[in-house]
Write a protein that binds this DNA or RNA. Structure first.
Lengths: 248, 248
DNA sequence: CCTTGGATTTGATCTTGATCAAGGTAAGGT
DNA sequence: ACCTTACCTTGATCAAGATCAAATCCAAGG
């Protein structure tokens, strides 16, 4: 939910459209100038690991384009994705030196980076930035907790439908679930990545997608392009309240 | 993990031992005085709902004693606990008016409350409080994400062992997993609450606890009092790395 | 055009944990 | 002491999803 809220927030700015929206919604001019000085861009190839869990991390930043995934792996190889980073999402942990999780580029990802130390210094002085960052973190926490409900209590079918709903909303920039029928979008994740996100196997992902297709709830062109002829019908499969969580 | 980190943080203070540690680790004297003026205490009975999801919430605060649970319920009654609030944990969401989840007292809970508006006002001025709150929120986010791994990928046995480990650590104030054998503690949660936290049924919780008992990994006196004769052996059942996540 | 390898789909079977159904246990009330 | 009630344990059965094992698809390269 909160991810969407973020995407739909204030309008963007020329030089770094995403960063401005995400971190600096309420920045003063001089703060923006400072941030501009310390920013840099970097692009990562699909599948590339941006940060390894346990690494010392020297930067914070925002996703500009692409999709990155936060994930954890157990010794025996079981993997769980614990967060999706979409454009405008913040990456990094002010006040913490080591990354708690892997950050992996799901497709080609561009980050807008700030050196960590000066950013933290600015954070210590600017109430506008730190309070904005607190809000964003609280939103992430809410999103994580909604995902806990999905992981702990939803069926495989509900999990898939929930993920498709989120991706569809993101791509279509829908404000309300019911706002538009016939949504089309591309899956930014492989079946395996979806499985790791949903806490199921890739076979289960494939079977559930096939089932939704067979029932006409979604249509597929190729493996990755999805059309949802009736969004409400997909929503009905998520197990969520019909209001789409707009209250939060 | 982070919950433990919090508990093991700086020493406490006379008038409101918990709050000082949690929110005001780096407060100035005058900020403490302000907080003292606006604080009040309230006690809730076991099972009582402190906040309903969707409610307008007028306070923030800290847990002083007892255990409270954050939880979500689906229309058909499926329930998932999405956070445990132990003494010193922060409750509430500065900058947000409505509660996203239910908050329920698992046993008798005492809260130290601050009126939300003046607290937020202080937050807007005090870099020390807002940065501390950001850190605490990031810790909660890490804890939520570790729980996602548990919910998505661990077996029932690993889930139970993980929960027991966390509760044992909390109660025994262990610094390291291996620091002490023969840990004893009381379960603050019913079987049903544990089930809702772990994303399984209460029967599964009961069976797995019985299995661990049968194998001598834990001992039970009554339903609630647990003894762990060899902590490392319990840890081995959690599926986690042996280091116990001390790096984060 | 053909080959190749990764990604995906599909099928058959198995396992874990859910569900359904009794019993057991202990604290509190009468 | 006896009953009530809430909570917990245990057993039998079932089903969702995991696992194992082929096919199939398709884009990239030769």
């Amino acid at each position: 939910m909160s991810v969407q809220a973020n995407l739909l927030a204030e309008s963007s700015c020329e030089s770094c459209p995403i960063r401005y929206r995400a971190v600096c919604a309420r920045c003063e001019e001089d703060e923006l100038a400072l941030l501009d000085q310390m920013k840099s861009y970097k692009t990562y190839a699909p599948g590339q690991t941006i940060v390894w869990a346990g690494d010392k991390v020297q930067f914070v930043g925002s996703v500009v384009t692409g999709v990155a995934a936060l994930s954890q792996t157990m010794e025996d190889g079981r993997r769980q994705m614990v967060g999706l980073l979409l454009p405008s999402d913040f990456v990094g942990r002010p006040g913490r030196d080591y990354a708690p999780f892997d950050v992996v580029a799901a497709n080609e990802v561009t980050l807008c980076k700030f050196a960590k130390a000066p950013f933290e210094e600015l954070l210590g002085r600017s109430a506008s930035i730190s309070s904005r960052l607190l809000e964003m973190t609280l939103d992430e926490l809410d999103a994580a907790r909604e995902w806990m409900l999905l992981l702990g209590r939803k069926t495989a079918r509900e999990k898939i439908a929930s993920l498709l709903t989120i991706l569809a909303r993101r791509d279509a920039h829908l404000r309300l679930a019911s706002a538009s029928s016939n949504v089309r979008f591309d899956l930014p994740l492989s079946r395996e990545a979806m499985a790791d996100y949903l806490g199921v196997t890739l076979e289960t992902v494939s079977r559930q997608i096939s089932a939704l297709k067979r029932e006409g709830i979604i249509e597929l062109e190729g493996k990755r392009h999805v059309t949802v002829p009736d969004f409400a019908r997909l929503m009905n499969e998520t197990g969520d309240d019909s209001d789409g969580g707009m209250l939060t």
